[in-house]
Amino acid sequence: MIRGSGQRYLPGARALYKVRCRDSTEAVVGAITGTVRRPQTLVLGRLDAAGALRAVGRSTPLQPDAARELAEWLSPAEPGHPWEGVRFTTSWGSRTPLDVVLVEPALVSEITVDTALERGAWRHPVRFARLRLDVAVADVPPFGAGAEPASG
């Protein structure tokens, strides 16, 4: 929260401004809402130290152009997906289940994120920036690393 250098504190007044810093980083697309041909949001993950895909966030709704581009590359998950049986919720702290479609965790997405992490996941929705077809899943920063760039 900030206020002007010459501005004094005014009790009860909305005189402060919230400024958020967003960073760019990468994550693996592990699931979506919608369908493989019409994705609506992404459920993203990163590999932990043991090599397991751990959820790190969910995107805001995709723009139509981004959804069309992603639909060209998404494929339904094969049996044995790391998130089989995992229950996702509609928002942070919610108990309302989120209906997801598991996809092959082979695509890397560049995302913009804020700095609020809790237990390795972003508390606020992330924003899809673009697909990173030039980055391998193994090059994505590890689970819990925050907004580091990919090493690839």
Rank of each mutant, 00 (worst) to 15 (best):
V86S: 09
F88P: 01
V101M: 09
L74T: 03
A138T: 11
H81D: 08
A129E: 15
T60F: 13
M1N: 11
V86F: 08
V113K: 14
V135W: 01
P11H: 08
W83G: 05
L16E: 13
W83E: 07
S109V: 10
A121N: 06
L44K: 02
L117M: 12
L102P: 01
G34N: 14
S5R: 10
E110Y: 10
S109R: 05
G34T: 13
G30P: 00
H81R: 06
R54L: 15
A31Q: 03
E110L: 11
A145M: 02
G146C: 09
P76K: 04
V36E: 08
V101F: 03
L133H: 09
A136Y: 04
V126P: 10
F88I: 01
D114S: 14
F88K: 00
R37M: 13
V56L: 07
R95D: 13
V19H: 07
T35H: 01
P97H: 06
G30D: 01
T89A: 09
F88Y: 04
P105E: 07
G4W: 07
V135F: 02
A13D: 12
I111W: 03
L42Y: 15
G6T: 11
A27M: 01
V137L: 02
A106F: 03
V29P: 05
D99L: 11
V103D: 00
G85W: 03
K18F: 14
L70F: 04
T89P: 02
A129S: 13
W92F: 15
D139P: 02
W73P: 04
G57Y: 13
R87C: 09
V103C: 00
V28F: 04
Y17T: 14
L133G: 09
S59N: 12
A147K: 09
G34F: 14
A145E: 08
R20T: 14
V108K: 00
E84C: 04
S94T: 02
H81S: 08
E69F: 03
T35S: 15
R132M: 06
L133Y: 05
G57T: 10
P79H: 03
G152S: 02
G12M: 05
A106R: 15
P64Y: 00
A71P: 11
S109D: 11
S109Y: 06
C21G: 07
P105M: 03
Q7A: 05
E110D: 13
R87T: 15
R68W: 05
L62Q: 12
L42F: 14
A145S: 15
P61F: 13
A13N: 07
G144P: 02
E26T: 11
A71S: 12
G85A: 12
